[in-house]
Design a protein around this nucleic acid. Structure first.
Lengths: 200, 200, 200, 200
DNA sequence: AATGAATGAGGTTTCATTCAT
DNA sequence: AATGAATGAAACCTCATTCAT
């Protein structure tokens, strides 16, 4: 009975949710640009080329849609993180790659920072889901820092949080046509980190 | 039937703005907690004990109300900045005071961070007004850092932006009943700054 | 300083909710005719001459509006009940008046039966509120029956419920231009009741 | 790989309607519980295990589906009626059986009352179809009463309608765990009927 | 016989705002 | 300085229905 035409089961899995993922990307970009409240279901639908009601074919609510986007964004950052971390075995080099990847991830494709910003949370459920997903990412970050040895008076946890603050602040002030390139920003952050390392 | 004191114009001046400032505080707290879109004029009015329409006796629009709050918040932070900066003539000590004042300002009275967060901007006009007010504050900050002398490879402007990022990130993760006190956070930031200073 | 123009405080109380009561009547008639789900807020608003959103000036939700109508209808029936019951001291005569009033109440002014029909309940809260208001009315009914003395095998509670069933069924089949007048229907019901009374 | 029995047209006939009848039962129960408007095609489809659009393979519209349910319910009651009426030749006994069957029919399997309630009608066509189907049932009922001889002042038609009102009211107040059993309710109704019969 | 994507109309509700009083 | 009635637009969402596959 042999091969059914083209329909390949191995391709089905990634092809099934394709349209859904396109919707996710489309909505994500809009929300990143205009904020959660600033983006209506109609806005998203119009951009995607369907009617507002049709979105509910894919997601049961605006909140569910947002959560799916959030997951996608965080997953993307985690993936980028792993890719970056694999570029070098040297802890300092690895950190430099990771910082660069983080900033590029935030700056690239529509300022996704807004999606992972705590300001988008509207309900306690949203806040909980989001916080738990972020924690996964931040734990990776922590491991990357632990590979370095700091001066005894340095608190690694606060250092990590401060570093994240600096990183997440970049999209607020950075202009693509501005004075600074990402590599320079990362250089300065590395200086900061090295200034805290154990002298040897 | 005793005569109510005849309406005295001389008393009106200081009494008028008082009520207006109360409204500003009241609205500010709500917006800080729930966001700009998450707070309706009705919410504000209810909290203040009047009806929604009556707010328009004080401000011509929601945006104008928000802008007034923003100005008030930034002015407050500038004032706190000056007070903190006056506590010491020593540049390092002064920076420590200023950092402490900044964090306390953000954490105190309802997480004002949200008010000065770029996520609250809805129109280009809002963004412009807000950006210009922030610049005043950040210039003060810059002056405070310039009093210190850094290693030649350090870019003071990026350092300042990174520092601000770390500072503004604190309200995202800090819990009043949590592990860290503000003074410890500031200590760690000072370590970071000192790690970048010119060795002498 | 004396009399303020026309505004009479004694008239104010009943005048204040006048418009609200008009809205209630207007909405009640529509819902009676088309059912709860069959009547949209837009329908009600159009009939009343305002926009849909403006109804929320008076009631916070469609359910609250319906509940207010229900209360009004039941209160009206209770009032009609008392008026009817006062027409005679003789228990049988009084019952006849009460039955007549009940049927006329249901038939008159837009078939209000639908409002007090259990089919209109959409939420447990609605059902609870409605059930409790009905109970008041049915208790009056019970008292009216208790004044009569029935044969020992008669269960007065079931009799009352059956009588109510017959009464509330009348609007389902009665046509104003049909064969039967209300008085004949009541006559037949009274025959039924008398057939159950203690022979003496 | 054993051959599935070749699609046999002779088997299709009894199997096709079976699935359709299952759908009818499934939808009927939902509508009985939640009302016509309160039950969406999606609700029905979900309960039946298919998608909303697939219902349209069985019925061209929601109204057609409802009408089919109505017919089924009335047919069921007619069948139960005949079964009950055949239990005794004695007119009084037969009436008792019929009343019992009617109440049990209403109370059993999801309060079908709602399906035959005039409140479910949304269009004049629905109302007409429904009214005509009901008339068949009520005629049977009338015949059952005509076998009894009533006092001359009794109007048999009104008596029948009142009896139906009482019967159809039972599901509104009866609780399965409540004070009264169906047999007691029927006893009281029989008392009522007998109180109106010609003395001999 | 059934799916899955989409429609288009309409539902309830919220909101900033206006204005006569 | 404030109310209360109302507006008009837009929000999220649900629904019955259609149709290519």
């Amino acid at each position: 009975m042999a091969r059914k035409p083209a329909k390949n089961a191995a391709l089905d899995d990634p092809e099934g949710p394709k349209r859904l993922n396109e919707l996710l990307d489309c909505a994500g970009e809009l929300i990143a640009r205009q904020g959660y409240d600033g983006t209506s279901m109609r806005d998203i639908a119009r951009e995607f080329g369907i009617l507002a009601g049709s979105i509910y074919h894919y997601f049961p609510s605006k909140e569910a849609l947002f959560l799916a986007i959030h997951t996608r964004v965080v997953d993307g950052m985690i993936e980028r993180f792993h890719t970056a971390a694999a570029l070098s075995e040297n802890p300092e080099e690895r950190l430099r790659h990771v910082l660069t990847a983080h900033i590029n991830g935030l700056l690239g494709s529509g300022a996704l920072l807004r999606i992972i910003s705590p300001d988008q949370m509207r309900t306690p459920e949203m806040a909980a889901r989001i916080a738990s997903e972020r924690r996964v990412y931040e734990r990776l970050f922590a491991q990357c820092l632990e590979a370095l040895s700091f001066a005894p008076e340095v608190d690694a946890r606060i250092l990590r949080l401060n570093l994240l603050g600096s990183l997440n602040w970049v999209p607020v002030w950075h202009r693509p046509d501005g004075r600074y390139q990402v590599s320079e920003i990362v250089d300065q952050m590395m200086l900061m980190v090295k200034g805290l390392m154990r002298a040897n």
